Amino acid sequence: MTSGISPAAERTTRFHTPVAANTRLRELVARGARVLPLVVDRPTESGLDSDTPPAYGQVGRTGVALDSIDDMRVLLSGIPLDKVSLTLSVDAVAAPLILLYQLVAEEQGVPAERLRGSVRNDVLKEFITPGGTCLFPPAPSMRLTRDVLRYCRTGLPRWDVVSVCGHQLAEAGADPAQEVAFALTNGIAYVRTAAAAGVFVPRLALCLADGGNQAAVLAKFRAARRIWTRAMVEQFGPDRAGRAVLRRRVPSPWGVAAPRTGRPWPRADDSQEIEAAAVTLMDDIEGLGGAVRAVERRFQSTALSADIRPPGLPRVATPGPEAHAAHRRQTERLAKLRAWRVQSAVDDALIRLERAARVDQNVMVPMRSALAASATVGEICETLRAVWGTYPSLPGGR
């Protein structure tokens, strides 16, 4: 998810159906792979069921559609879950997908303490980058992140549940100082959230872009490491600071190179200049009340001026026969699921989820019950949207 997976490897899991994705995952395991990357399609990533009108033409287009526990069962059939580690490239919809993975593993007889995996789950980045999937406003999104951290501490102790994606900020137009500042303030926000929930984060992956001049890359990483170490020790003390794992990320698999903006930062000793500029930005964000409040005021997204942003992902072509077929298959699967499930059990579980979302209870427990009763990912997200609201799009943007 964050390193060691090439764009080509990511494309190996971009299939239209759980059946096809399962075939490919089995092939990877047979060849000795023990880390399995998984990319979901845009509707799943956006918390939408495949049979909803906005999903038409997008089902299975850039990844596998995972609407329910049925799809996760098919996807993981025959995979030795106690011997592999799954990496989920998702953010806002991380919570239900983690739970679906755990539920299917338990059906296969694999206890939670033997499950290994990681999920990106960098929700703050989604509010900054153009085209980000923002299911809920920033504060509820961080509340959900808190619940995931608290649940996984005991429910999935070997899972890494946050990875900060600075490289995607660079792809959105951030210069080195902005990339470092925005990524680190996001990381600090996650650690603060974990600490407030009584959870210690011993290691946090911070992924920075690896494009451009090698000396500039090294300077950026040196600056980030110094800032992070100092911030953690000052805010949490040397015993609870944990450590950051800085990882390099190659340019986007879509072929959009991170643009050079502002200073080119050409010299290796420019790490001090990057550090100074990043610290100034971080102080500005802290003055606004931290990363979450700054996101609410669109501080980071407006700092990336529109004229330097890359054009974004390739335009989606008019849905063709494959898109029609993928949509039809998933629609039929959902119809069968809803016909065979016990609807009263689903309704009761969703009511409990709604109640938990309205008060300060961990929503992961009722969410797990709803998913086990065959509630869909879209129904889970719609229930939470009804309580937490949605995030308004940028004018002329998302």
Rank of each mutant, 00 (worst) to 15 (best):
R248Y: 01
H324M: 03
M367K: 06
G155L: 08
V180C: 09
A241H: 09
V387G: 06
L88E: 03
A277L: 10
I79K: 09
G262W: 14
W254G: 11
R298Y: 13
A277F: 07
R11P: 00
E322T: 12
E322C: 00
R222C: 08
L28C: 02
V279Q: 09
A345V: 06
P96F: 05
A326F: 02
L75A: 09
V217T: 10
A95K: 01
D41G: 07
P137W: 12
P266N: 07
A216L: 01
R146Y: 06
T133S: 14
E275L: 13
R120C: 05
A8G: 03
R368C: 09
L384M: 09
L115K: 12
C152V: 11
R263V: 07
L281N: 11
S68Y: 10
I308D: 02
L156A: 12
S77Q: 11
A92T: 13
D82Q: 12
L124I: 15
R61W: 03
L103F: 10
A95T: 01
H167C: 05
L353D: 04
A195I: 03
E234Y: 01
P157V: 13
E296W: 04
L204Y: 08
P157S: 13
P259C: 12
A8D: 02
L81Q: 00
P111N: 08
D147N: 13
S77T: 09
A209V: 00
E332T: 05
A335W: 11
W254Q: 14
G109A: 05
P266E: 07
T185V: 15
T193A: 15
D269L: 10
I227D: 12
A183G: 02
R352Y: 04
V180K: 11
R315K: 05
T280A: 15
R328L: 10
P264C: 02
S344E: 14
H16C: 02
G396R: 15
M1P: 06
S369G: 01
Y151S: 12
A177E: 14
A258C: 09
F136Q: 08
S68N: 10
W340A: 13
R203A: 13
Q102N: 04
R243I: 05
I285G: 12
R315I: 03
P321E: 15
W228N: 00
V59E: 10
L208S: 04
I98Q: 11
R150I: 11
D91L: 06
T383R: 03
L169G: 06
P238M: 00
G32E: 09
S369D: 12
K336R: 10
Y151E: 14
A303Q: 15
A231P: 06
Q361V: 10
V35N: 04
V162F: 10
R358C: 04
E106C: 06
L76E: 11
V377E: 10
D307K: 13
G4M: 08
K336C: 02
D82P: 01
A291Y: 10
I128V: 15
T280W: 00
D239M: 11
A112P: 09
T133N: 08
R116T: 14
K125P: 00
A174F: 04
R243H: 13
E286V: 02
A95L: 13
F236M: 10
